[in-house]
């Protein structure tokens, strides 16, 4: 039998033991890395979006260099790929996918969700995005809005800056951040209130 066909849990346990013995990855290092990774969550991206909605200068910096704009808010981006931010406008809606694997803006959104990694999403997002969004997320992109599908194929990671919903005048950044969800920053949904 090909040793790589060994059940995954056994493979992980064996590899983990060997790498610990060799001093390459200890249990403590793995636990520390998990703790660091768990700290990244969609709430971080949501803070960036909310700030961009209330602060035009920050919005400009965010669109220019997403990683720098994240760091401005204390979000650690060292060692992360460059982050590009694509702005939804009254004319254009953006949707992010990675058809080749599952590149995701982890630094600002955390682990990619299950659906993002699925074969169905990866296949359908580029070929029938309007149909997929309507069917799976009830997100209907009006006919007069151009849709841009961003296939994240290489060294950048991409995040969507959604449009601020009507009815949020005078809201604080905290209130605004609370309505921004993970899917809004990938483009499968748009922020709504109530």
């Amino acid at each position: 039998m090909n040793i790589l066909d060994t059940p995954s849990d056994r493979l992980l346990a064996a590899v983990r033991d060997l790498l610990a013995q060799k001093g390459i990855a200890t249990t403590a290092e793995i636990q520390e890395r998990i703790a660091i990774t768990d700290r990244a969550s969609p709430g971080q991206g949501a803070r960036m979006v909310a700030k961009a909605w209330v602060d035009p200068a920050y919005r400009a910096r965010l669109l220019d260099d997403g990683a720098k704009a994240a760091e401005e808010l204390g979000i650690p981006m060292r060692g992360m790929p460059p982050l590009g931010v694509l702005e939804n406008t009254p004319d254009t809606h953006n949707l992010v996918v990675c058809t080749l694997c599952s590149c995701y803006p982890r630094g600002v959104l955390g682990y990619p969700p299950f659906w993002y990694k699925s074969a169905a999403f990866r296949a359908r997002a580029v070929r029938d995005p309007r149909g997929m969004l309507a069917e799976e997320w009830k997100t209907v992109i009006p006919d007069d809005i151009r849709l841009t599908v961003v296939d994240s194929t290489a060294d950048y990671r991409w995040m969507v800056l959604p449009m601020r919903p009507d009815g949020t005048d005078g809201w604080s950044e905290e209130q605004l951040a609370a309505i921004v969800r993970e899917g809004d920053m990938i483009g499968v949904t748009v922020p709504t209130i109530g």
């Binding site: 990855a25 793995i30 768990d38 682990y111 969700p113 299950f114 699925s118 296949a123 029938d128 997320w137």
Partner: peptide, 24 residues
């Protein structure tokens, strides 16, 4: 072959196995 397959949009929490592999 995947164009008619539904996207499972439900949240799935990562397991300890998933997180360990990711960390490694």
């Amino acid at each position: 072959k995947f164009m008619c397959e539904a996207v499972d949009t439900e949240p799935h929490a990562l397991t300890d196995f998933d997180k360990e592999v990711d960390a490694l």
